[in-house]
Design a protein around this nucleic acid. Sequence first.
DNA 1: GCATTTACATACAGGCTGCATGTAAATTCA
DNA 2: TGAATTTACATGCAGCCTGTATGTAAATGC
Lengths: 198, 198
Amino acid sequence: MQSDSMRRSNQERTDATRAALVAAARRLFTGAGYAATGTPEIVGAAGVTRGALYHHFADKQTLFRAVVEQEAAAVASEIERAAPDATDAIEALRVGGRAYLEAMRMPGRTRLLLLDGPAVLGRALMDEIDARHGNRALREGLTAAMRAGSLAKMPVGPLTALLGAMFDRAALAVQQGEALDDQLAVMDAIVAGLARQT
Amino acid sequence: MQSDSMRRSNQERTDATRAALVAAARRLFTGAGYAATGTPEIVGAAGVTRGALYHHFADKQTLFRAVVEQEAAAVASEIERAAPDATDAIEALRVGGRAYLEAMRMPGRTRLLLLDGPAVLGRALMDEIDARHGNRALREGLTAAMRAGSLAKMPVGPLTALLGAMFDRAALAVQQGEALDDQLAVMDAIVAGLARQT
DNA sequence: GCATTTACATACAGGCTGCATGTAAATTCA
DNA sequence: TGAATTTACATGCAGCCTGTATGTAAATGC
């Protein structure tokens, strides 16, 4: 009878509970920050108990990691949607950079990914996450530009990290009320400087 | 009698207790991080009680702020000691940058100033602290270079923030085992690129 | 159809933060 | 110079939070 409405496989239950927890945690972490958000509040918002949380996640930090991972993937997807991979390499960097700053305007994202993330998970883990999502496009763009000869040759790893750090800082500045275009103008000047010394 | 050894003015007592607390907190915060360090541990290392801590500081966060302030001032002083203000502007930037990276090798400083600081105190407060200590020399150097015509003209505020972010990220990379000179090489290329487009 | 595993709910222990209260020493003031 | 007041702490308490241990019902494997 109600086997359709009541009966749920373990896989479905797990997926639903985990999704509810991550969604609630995302809302609270982006709103108040990691330290100010307690697990009782999270499970309350998700409509489950703390038992469910600690069954699916090792600890609060692991749940946070899942949220960061999801949000980093979302940012990367927004960038790729806006990036026309057809244009020339330098232009692609500019377009991708703007798309990144736009994506980071989503409330709380800078706090989650740029402040709490590194402090809670550490730089090494954030680097690994970034390499899979955020900075991946940047790295590929830089490699392509260098191969095309439109960018001076230098170690790609450090360059990606340093340019990525500038974009992060620009996103934080925009968050604090600075004009997005002012940040982009300086960024463009720096990239142009690198392009000039082929 | 023992009025010399026992008798202490309130000013002296306050100074001694505050200094002991800040010193102990600095050691523990740089070693284990802000979240993993409890106030009982801090006061134990300082040889006082929690009552003394909460008499002199509003809360744990305010004590942390005092530590950050002290450490930022120490970094700035190390840079100024190494910076020969006589040389030309671009060269001063290079020398100052290297001095910054060297100063940030002190164990735990990157964690305190670049990870925990922004997360605990927020970017706005860290910006204000940086403006008084760390980034002040950088800003002045950039302004001088632009006035001397050896650097393309652009808004100094954003440029300082973005270049400062790159230096911070380089310091973190060095902390993670990357070669200091590799980071400096990329930084130099970027500064050189800016210098070229006068 | 039974044994085992999974997905939770509930209860508990330990630790930590901030505050309230108490006390002795230092400072102020008459 | 002696009393009143303020300062510099020490101690104890209340509330909250995290992680874990234990119990239970549903799902899965055999």
